[in-house]
């Protein structure tokens, strides 16, 4: 470990100077530099993700199972209250699978955003004392959300297999696309909010309310056909258009199209009083869904770049503002 003093001095003399200033100039160069810095800290990122997961369920007997308790409880509530009492299940085949698919991907999005938002403030001790690329904290929050998502997704796949509703079709390709879009938007918004939350603690409460609004503004407990139907009935054709402006709605539709077999075929759901079959038609998936996903993805990448630049601009004062 010890090195001859002269050798050390000679090695240091050959090293380039590193300058610590906030603003690196350029459009993409600073973004790339930050990404490179993060890549060089990937081992630490892994350790931070492990820490988050370990600490969350420390000293509890069920441990990891708790991460499944919440979505399954929500599933039961929506299944009973909205599916049976309000009757949504009559128009949505495999209602349980449908809701769980929506909850799974939405859970990823909302976990990334809520955990990221408080990540900088929660790691104040470290940020004040040690220099690290600070993006690592929102990313660690994203990593732990991703692991929770994987477990839930595993349960979802097992459920589709058990109910013999596993979709063997090209639609499966929508799944990774939907996850990527959610990741890009989650990280972009998470970076932005985590930095703003240092300066304005109101953000973390605003996020809770905002996520609640967007939860109901997305096709999670009701299906896309309900939106199309009410737009038609109320003669407000622009409603569909406005509804699909939300990038996460597009990702949700893609995810459902990928994993929810019942949405892509006509189903007979019982018989009516006269003895005729009640047929629920396949979901009227937006015709240009592929193009929409492409556009949403590109916009997301731009947003990610903006989020990182704002973060970089604001992080210079983190240590003194926390």
């Amino acid at each position: 470990m010890s090195l001859d003093a002269q050798q050390r001095a000679d090695r240091l003399a050959a090293l380039p100077w590193e300058r610590s200033t906030t603003a690196r100039k350029g459009v993409f160069a600073p973004f790339v530099a930050s990404v490179r810095e993060l890549v060089s800290h990937r081992q630490l990122l892994g350790l931070l993700v492990r820490r988050e997961l370990k600490v969350r369920y420390k000293d509890s007997a069920l441990g990891f199972l708790w991460s499944l308790v919440r979505p399954i409880t929500l599933l039961v509530i929506y299944y009973v209250a909205i599916g049976q009492f309000l009757g949504a299940a009559r128009g949505i085949p495999d209602f349980g699978l449908f809701v769980f698919a929506g909850l799974t991907i939405w859970g990823l999005y909302s976990d990334i955003i809520t955990n990221s938002t408080t990540s900088i403030v929660n790691n104040a001790g470290l940020i004040k004392k040690v220099y690290l690329p600070r993006e690592i904290f929102p990313l660690a929050a994203t990593g732990s959300a991703l692991i929770n998502f994987s477990i839930q997704f595993g349960v979802l796949v097992v459920a589709t297999l058990a109910l013999q509703q596993f979709p063997v079709s090209w639609n499966l390709l929508y799944l990774p696309v939907a996850v990527l879009i959610v990741l890009v938007y989650g990280v972009a918004i998470g970076l932005l909010l985590s930095a703003l939350n240092v300066y304005l603690r109101d953000i973390q409460y605003l996020v809770e309310v905002g996520l609640l609004v967007f939860f109901w503004a997305s096709p999670i407990v009701y299906s896309w056909s309900f939106v199309v139907e009410s737009a038609r009935r109320s003669e407000l054709p622009w409603l569909e258009f406005v509804y699909l402006l939300n990038p996460i709605s597009n990702a949700l539709l893609a995810f459902q199209k990928g994993i929810w077999k019942g949405g892509s075929e006509d189903r007979v759901m019982g018989v009516d009083a006269s003895g005729a079959d009640i047929v629920v038609a396949a979901q009227p998936w937006p015709a240009d869904l592929d193009l929409r996903l492409l556009v949403v993805g590109v916009v997301g990448l731009v947003l990610l770049w903006i989020g990182q630049r704002v973060f970089a601009r604001l992080q210079g004062n983190f240590a003194q503002e926390i």
Binding site: L15, P16, W17, R19, S20, T21, K128, Y131, A319, Q320
Partner: peptide, 18 residues
Amino acid sequence: KALGGIIQPTSGYVERRG
């Protein structure tokens, strides 16, 4: 803290290596 890069100076800069 400025030497360690934990806070950014308002003006001027710190350079270091190693």
